[in-house]
């Protein structure tokens, strides 16, 4: 039994669902970041699999740029997380609902 494109796409869908469930479930900001990384990785797997399957290098390029975006997102996001933790002393999302309404 050979491994085709479908296997990779199914795996990518499963990983994306896991990441999405994590994003919906998490209340801790750092854990929310982890779940986002899972979703980005799932997209990368799908991009690389389709790229190899069709024989077009664009998919791998896009995966490369997704990694660059993920790296800069982590750098800025962690800076903001540190500021938030210094200000509030917690990373729980429920403590940040400061709007009255």
């Amino acid at each position: 039994m050979t491994i085709g494109l479908t296997h990779y796409l199914v795996l990518s869908a499963i990983l994306f669902s896991v990441g999405l469930a994590g994003v919906l479930r998490r209340k801790n900001l750092l854990m929310l970041f982890f779940a986002t990384e899972i979703m980005l990785n799932a997209a990368n797997v799908a991009f690389a699999a389709i790229s190899v399957h069709i024989g077009d290098l664009s998919g791998q390029m896009f995966a490369l740029f997704i990694m660059a975006v993920a790296a800069s997102e982590v750098a800025v996001g962690l800076g903001l997380l540190i500021l938030i933790y210094k200000k509030y002393g917690t990373l729980n999302l429920d403590n940040f609902s400061i709007m009255k309404g």
């Binding site: 990384e37 690389a48 190899v52 990694m67 993920a70 790296a71 962690l78």
Partner: peptide, 22 residues
């Protein structure tokens, strides 16, 4: 998959840089 460069970049950027940053 045969995407060797992407695998190496994944190792360096994700497992190296991003997880070290975390």
């Amino acid at each position: 998959l045969g995407a060797d460069f992407l695998g190496a970049v994944q190792l360096v950027v994700y497992s190296g840089a991003i997880m070290a940053l975390y």
